[in-house]
Design a protein around this nucleic acid. Structure first.
Length: 336
DNA sequence: TACAAAAAGTTGGCTTGGTAG
DNA sequence: CTACCAAGCC
DNA sequence: AACTTTTTGTA
């Protein structure tokens, strides 16, 4: 079951909803059967071997069989969940790598739903009942690595405040009395994300492929820094087909042969078309990555009232916490 | 027929792993 | 060893 | 993840 995107304005009566943190990690469905545990990712892959301590912790739950829903989270030294940290544990397959990663980046499982208990499906049971049974069940484990995080019933403002303080992505609202809809987005789970606006200088574009073939695929963004323009990634979503055509008309006369930006990785410069960096646009985003790129940018439109020198970075210090990745076989410099 | 829901198709960053040269 | 691509996660 | 467009389903 997935959550649809929503705004705080979408909530007429907050009393109809329970609010939970939107944990910034990896979604898992856990299958408990006797003494065996199986963790499945969102795409249905078995990821049990990647998180052995989670599987161990789940085994301490006293139950014959159960199917649980939750999010695996890595916590930084300030105690805040960090997806950047967790990424070093995703896709590890060799047992040796997993062991090293397990020591360097501990994870825990935040459980928020219960779909099956002792062979009885709870999919058609109301949310409150599923959650109550889940809490009872996990209490039998008393293991710090498996938790049922608190709810904020009927108080979106409080939930959003906590979410922001923990540096989380946002809040998930769950409609009271609603059923579990496997694989579905039914407007009974809604996610409210902390979004920021960021002005960016457009320094070029990249060709589109497939249905975007012959036109623009994405725009290359930059931000003024130390008197130069620093590359901050690409934006490839948020525009309509018409938008893309109009953007192409505007950029083509500005084409130039040389790269006007600094800090462009060769992999990104390879297939770029550069333009005079004179136009300013606006994107919505979820923040900044460790490599100082814009995280999850979506196009919002031009800012004809702004010049490149007017562009400021709002909160560069809010970048996800550094990953202390001692496991990479690549040069540590790349992670700096 | 009109609207809503679902599916398909495009794009982003990051990390690992594989292949070609 | 670098370059490039694909598959995962978001 | 995001978003848009297209297809499918339903009222």
């Amino acid at each position: 079951m997935l959550a649809d995107l929503a705004d705080p304005a979408d909530f007429g009566n907050e009393q109809d909803w329970a609010f939970e943190m939107k944990w910034d990690g990896v979604r898992v469905v856990a299958y408990l059967e006797g003494s065996s545990v199986e963790l499945l990712s969102r795409s249905g892959l078995d990821i049990t071997a990647s998180y052995p301590e989670v599987a161990d912790a789940l085994q301490s739950i006293k139950v014959d069989s159960a199917v649980l829903d939750g999010e695996i989270v890595a916590v930084d030294r300030n105690g805040r969940p960090s997806f950047a940290l967790l990424q070093s544990r995703i896709n590890l397959t060799r047992p040796g790598d997993v062991q090293k990663a397990r020591a360097a980046v501990p994870v825990q499982l935040m459980l928020f739903d219960l779909m099956e208990l002792d062979g009885r499906s709870l999919i058609k049971a109301p949310y409150e009942q599923r959650h109550a049974l889940l809490s009872e069940l996990v209490a039998t484990a008393d293991h710090p690595r498996v938790q049922v995080p608190p709810q904020f019933e009927g108080d979106l403002v409080a939930a959003l405040a906590v979410s922001e303080q923990l540096n989380l992505e946002g809040v998930v609202a769950k409609r009271l009395g609603s059923l579990y809809l496997p694989g579905g987005r039914g407007r009974t789970w809604l996610k409210i994300k902390h979004q920021r606006m960021q002005e960016v200088v457009i320094g070029g574009w990249r060709d589109g492929r497939g249905r975007r073939g012959g036109g623009i695929g994405s725009l290359l963004m930059a931000v003024p820094e130390s008197g130069r323009l620093r590359y901050v990634g690409r934006v490839g979503t948020g525009f309509t087909d018409v938008d893309l055509d109009q953007i192409a008309d505007r950029l083509e006369p500005l084409a130039r042969a040389t790269c006007p930006l600094v800090d462009v990785p060769s992999i990104d410069a390879r297939d770029a078309h550069w333009v005079e960096p004179v136009l300013v646009g606006e994107v919505a985003c979820s923040g900044w990555t460790r490599q100082r790129r814009i995280w999850q940018p979506t196009w919002r439109g031009w800012r004809p009232d702004k010049r490149p020198d007017d562009v400021r970075v709002e909160h560069p210090e809010d970048a996800p916490t550094p990953a202390t990745n001692q496991l990479s076989r690549r040069a540590p410099d790349e992670l700096r």
